[in-house]
């Protein structure tokens, strides 16, 4: 930052477009990841309007291999794998994105409070340590088995183990920021706390949070698949990538297409999200980024 703007001629600021292009050239993984993810989201949202009903059984057409008529083949109940894979994308992506959003929002709130209110900090952090000590997949399985299987329960069950990590990250940022001179200056001129949080703390946590959220999204998609595989995930009549693979796993030697296509879609999506996260992280301050892992 240059202070004496009136005496020194500023280098001409690049236009927005040029800056984006430069950023993309330096971090090519970001546009790649975004692009693939975008395509997946569009396919998942629009796809089901153009395919047959992914739930429609037709037992007389069961286990047909991929062909012109059935693009990805059919499963053991004669449902089309193509239609199911696209519909499954909706569920898997919805779970991934919701978990990422909910856990960052909840984690952000708890983290800021905990970083600012000393009295609560100790208690909150002990609870978070305790939650982190319970292996996430186990906690999620237990939560789902104890309640009933539904998409919202799956989202909650995957979110709960992710929250403590976000809380820790946010709290660390808050703790380091609150000692900064400009924050103390703001406090001393009587700026109200909510305003300080909004104006100074939130923007500082945003960048690492976005990176963290992408990783959470990627892991949530995988965890959903794992939970469904174990029979403790999304209700089976709703096709998610995990569910389709879970149902098709019995047949992986006879009719590999049932798990091949959703598996491929899942791997590509998660890969794209991870690559996106890596790119975003690299383009941020590496020291902040490291704190998250």
């Amino acid at each position: 930052m240059t202070l004496a703007t009136d005496t020194i001629e500023l280098p001409r600021r690049d236009s927005r477009r040029v800056r984006i292009r430069k950023y993309c050239r330096r971090h090519p993984t970001v546009p790649f990841g975004l692009g693939v993810l975008g395509v997946m989201i569009i396919i998942s949202i629009l796809g089901p309007y153009f395919t047959v009903d992914p739930l429609a059984l037709s037992p007389f057409k069961r286990l047909k291999p991929p062909s012109g008529e059935f693009l990805f083949g059919t499963d053991m109940y004669g449902r089309e794998v193509f239609a199911r894979t696209l519909a499954g994308g909706r569920i898997s992506l919805a779970v991934g994105i919701s978990v990422a959003l909910v856990s960052t929002v909840v984690g952000l709130a708890i983290g800021i409070v905990s970083g600012y209110v000393r009295a609560l900090d100790a208690v909150v952090m002990r609870v978070m340590d305790g939650l982190m000590a319970i292996p996430g997949v186990l906690l999620a399985i237990a939560l789902i088995s104890l309640t009933s299987a539904s998409i919202s329960n799956v989202i909650i069950a995957i979110t709960i183990p992710e929250v403590p990590r976000v809380v820790r990250l946010v709290r660390a940022v808050v703790l380091s920021i609150r000692e900064q001179p400009y924050i103390q200056a703001a406090v001393s001129v009587g700026m109200p706390l909510p305003r300080i949080l909004w104006k100074h703390v939130l923007p500082n946590t945003l960048a690492p949070l976005i990176v963290q959220a992408t990783y959470i999204c990627a892991s949530a998609v995988i965890v959903e698949a794992i939970l469904s595989f174990l029979g403790a995930g999304t209700p089976p009549e709703i096709p998610s990538w995990g569910n389709i693979m879970a149902e098709g796993r019995t047949y992986f030697q006879i009719t590999p297409w049932i798990i091949l296509f959703p598996g491929l879609f899942l791997a590509i999506t998660v890969l794209a999200v991870n690559v996106l996260g890596d790119g975003l992280r690299d383009s941020l301050d590496p020291r902040i980024a490291r704190r998250m892992r």
Binding site: L57, P59, F60, R62, L63, M76, G78
Partner: peptide, 9 residues
């Protein structure tokens, strides 16, 4: 028939 196709094949 429909049931038997679906569950046995």
């Amino acid at each position: 028939e429909e049931y038997l196709q679906a569950i046995i094949g």
